Amino acid sequence: MMSDIDPVPNDLVFAHDGLLPAIIQDDESGDVLMLAWMDHEAVRRTLTTGRVTFWSRSRREYWRKGDTSGHRQYVRGVAMDCDGDTLLVRVVQIGAACHTGTRTCFTDRDVTALVGDPSGDA
């Protein structure tokens, strides 16, 4: 039986569109797997089911990772950032996290950037 108490923290800050970013991280390796969007209901479902649920901005519907692909995400921990406007969801990832079939969405897409040197700062 589900509790009537809302598990979503009151100090979680959603943007004007009702969404916040959720960074998905592999609990074992620490790899950042993907970023997706959650509204209040997606956060509630994630916190109460042990499976990650997102809000699809393009399809305008909820999607639970893995329901169609089989590439599931099982929640191991959830943390808010210091401003309360981003979630970090640590998961056990079964299969690929990315819709392209790769383990992470951050594969082979490096952007050229000047590498900083902390010893050279004045």
Rank of each mutant, 00 (worst) to 15 (best):
Q73V: 00
A22F: 11
D6L: 03
P9A: 02
H71I: 00
L114G: 01
F54C: 15
T49S: 13
G101M: 06
S119F: 15
D39R: 13
I5E: 15
L20T: 05
W37D: 09
M1F: 12
T104R: 01
W55I: 02
L88A: 05
L33P: 12
Q73G: 01
T48K: 04
D81V: 00
W55F: 14
S56I: 09
V75C: 06
T104F: 01
D4T: 12
R45I: 05
G101Y: 08
V89E: 10
R90V: 02
C98M: 09
D108F: 01
T104M: 00
R44S: 04
L88S: 04
T102R: 05
G70Q: 02
A122L: 13
V75S: 08
D31E: 15
R76C: 13
F14E: 04
L12V: 13
T107R: 13
T68K: 11
E41S: 08
R51K: 11
L12E: 08
V89L: 08
R72T: 00
S119Q: 14
C98T: 07
D117W: 02
S29H: 10
G101S: 06
A36C: 13
S56V: 06
T86W: 05
L87E: 10
L35Y: 03
G66L: 08
D6P: 07
A42K: 06
G84I: 02
F14H: 06
G18M: 07
S58E: 01
L47H: 05
T86I: 04
R109F: 00
T53D: 11
